[in-house]
Design a protein around this nucleic acid. Structure first.
Lengths: 157, 157
DNA sequence: TTATTTTTTATCGTGTGCGATATAATTTTT
DNA sequence: AAAAATTATATCGCACACGATAAAAAATAA
């Protein structure tokens, strides 16, 4: 005898097709809303959110091939390539083929790209201070971050 | 006397510019990975993830104006309009101007759109069964959903 | 050494996502 | 009722995001 009869199971299946019952939609919506929250801050630096992510990596790591940047952001290279080209146009970075391995294109910040770090330094805390106005507690957000990272670890292999 | 001297505060500010210290990147990355996880299941129905979200709303609510769909998905109408047009091209739904208020465009599923619900009914549980292979516990995911919804509530006004 | 496979990047096409703007219909104000 | 403001949708342009594919270089196998 089943604990979950077939008919009940089908009802449950249809019930899960309601938007409110899904985990995935909140992640999707939150992602867009967070990007939107960053935008006025990033606009002052004339960059977008994905470009800001690239900059964060380069500020931390220095010179890096395209592939490594894509892997760190869990993005495909066909997303990164035009993004990096736009950033090169803006004079934020340079792309050069590696001498050691000619398949690799090394990406390196220009002086202008380096200097943006100073202006960007206050962005994270501005976002944190925004969030502190909500009911969400810091420890909840930290736990959420860890769980999301666990989820990412599971889904990205 | 400050508990957090200025110099220390600046160091903290730069430290937060590391990718690993951010909450926002995990949300952004998880969103894309979840969409990627849906894709092979949705491909069989020949729809994308945002289109699936529209269908879920219409399955639940029936006829609805464009604006209400956009609001439920927290998307702008200029994103929804071409999306709905593509779905109309595929014969999943119909768009008709309302007689009562000619500004409104009512969206309604076709027979084909309605029938997709049956095929889609098993999608959520397939994703849940995928996730159950991870270390993440169901109660953690439920708490995460609630916290994300709280975050969305805060950011979407 | 030659052939095969893998790695790395780039190109192309489709589908979002959104700011800025336009247009028509409705509601509110005067 | 006429003017002004608001609402609902659409159009346009730009920037991702990714699957499919191509091309060149490097690593590996035969």
């Amino acid at each position: 005898m089943h604990l979950v009869p077939a008919a009940y199971s089908i009802i449950m299946a249809y019930d899960q097709l309601k938007l409110e019952n899904q985990l995935c939609f909140p992640v999707y919506a939150a992602s867009r809303l967070i990007t939107r929250e960053y935008q006025p801050l990033l606009e002052k630096l004339d960059i977008t959110y994905p470009q800001y992510l690239v900059l964060m990596i380069l500020w931390e790591e220095g010179q890096l091939p395209v592939n490594d940047i894509a892997r760190k952001l869990i993005l495909n290279t066909n997303t990164i390539t035009p993004l990096l080209k736009r950033m090169e146009q803006q004079g934020l970075l340079e792309r050069k083929r590696s001498k050691e391995d000619e398949r690799k294109v090394m990406v390196q910040l220009t002086e202008k790209g380096e200097q943006l770090q100073e202006q960007a330094a206050r962005i994270p805390e501005q976002l944190v201070s925004q969030l502190s106005k909500s009911d969400l507690k810091a420890e909840d957000l930290i736990r959420m971050k860890e769980q999301l990272n666990a989820l990412i670890g599971f889904l990205s292999k």
